[in-house]
């Protein structure tokens, strides 16, 4: 018995076996980087927002001067006020050494020796609602000129930056999807042109448009999935390397380089990367189907 020929359109020799997967692999590689960038920026932004928004810094000028009541120093009055203030916890007065280290880039290693009227600096954790403007107002009563600053405004900027990065990543993904679809369409059109006579014969023998389109789509999908899987796999070591570079900002400090990379990759990425071949399958199938069905419309 003659062996059944499963590819009557001869697509193995028509749709280039290497060109389409290689180009789709490049698209998939870019998509993997974009997805990883979007996910990493989300994770890092969440961490930074929590840390930044909770940071409260208070500067008390002339800390040794008497407060408004004249019963204590301004610093003591502010410290006492902070102990009872809602939303404020863990107030800690920076030591002279710590203050020197903070000012060293501008004033050298011994700022106190310059005789400048340096303020006392208190750090605390802010858990209250809003940007904490009321803190400065409350502290100015016992100690006029006291400044209080929370990280809320910085957190808002981080949020805006994250949103921009995610928008860019989404734009990259859309472009990659469109280019991927166009690549499949071009490859399919080339295949149609090469197999025009074959298709006309099969069409004349009673093949439905769907029969012909499905054969092209199956082949295009297989090639696209192969390319996308290869691209995602190739992106993985690059992502691990980038995650290792970003580890000081995201992972536990005691891990080795590879462990840093693995720990630094956003968990959602392990779900997103396998989705790239699936997305390529959907794009490849639909693009090939649309291309072939549109082309077949020209036949009677």
């Amino acid at each position: 018995m003659a062996k059944r020929h499963t590819d009557p359109l001869g697509l193995h020799s028509v749709l280039e076996d290497w060109m389409l997967p290689v180009l789709v692999a490049a698209m998939s590689f870019l998509a993997a980087l974009a997805v990883a960038g979007a996910l990493a920026s989300t994770v890092l932004a969440a961490q930074w927002q929590n840390d930044t928004a909770a940071a409260l810094t208070i500067q008390v000028p002339q800390p040794g001067a008497p407060d408004a009541t004249g019963n204590a120093t301004r610093l003591a009055a502010v410290q006492a006020a902070l102990q009872t203030m809602p939303g404020v916890s863990s107030p800690r007065l920076l030591s002279a050494d710590a203050l020197n280290r903070l000012l060293a880039p501008w004033l050298g290693t011994d700022a106190a020796a310059l005789g400048l009227p340096l303020p006392a600096v208190i750090t605390a954790t802010w858990n209250g609602p809003g940007p904490g403007d009321a803190i400065a107002a409350a502290l100015n009563k016992p100690a006029p000129g006291t400044l209080a600053q929370t990280g809320v405004q910085w957190a808002a900027r981080v949020t805006a930056l994250t949103g921009s990065l995610q928008t860019c990543a989404a734009a990259v993904l859309v472009i990659v999807a469109l280019v991927g679809g166009a690549l499949v369409a071009l490859a399919t059109r080339a295949g149609l042109a090469q197999r025009r006579e074959t298709i006309e014969i099969i069409h004349g023998l009673g093949a439905q448009d769907g029969d012909i389109a499905s054969r092209f789509a199956s082949r295009a999908t297989a090639l696209a999935v192969t390319g996308a899987a290869a691209g995602a796999l190739l992106a993985l070591p690059v992502l691990l390397w980038l995650a290792a570079l970003a580890a000081p900002f995201s992972g536990p400090p005691q891990l080795s380089g590879l462990q840093h990379g693995l720990a630094g990759l956003p968990p959602a990425l392990w779900t997103a990367l396998p989705c790239l071949p699936l997305a390529a399958a959907v794009i490849g199938w639909s693009s090939a189907q649309l291309t072939v069905r549109g082309w077949l419309r020209k036949l009677v």
Binding site: P8, L205, A207, D211
Partner: peptide, 20 residues
């Protein structure tokens, strides 16, 4: 004739039946 060059005689003749 319009035979498919990459298919055997058997597969060419089988084509209408397989399409059906």
């Amino acid at each position: 004739f319009r035979l498919l060059a990459h298919l055997s005689a058997y597969d060419n003749v089988a084509l209408p039946m397989r399409l059906a």
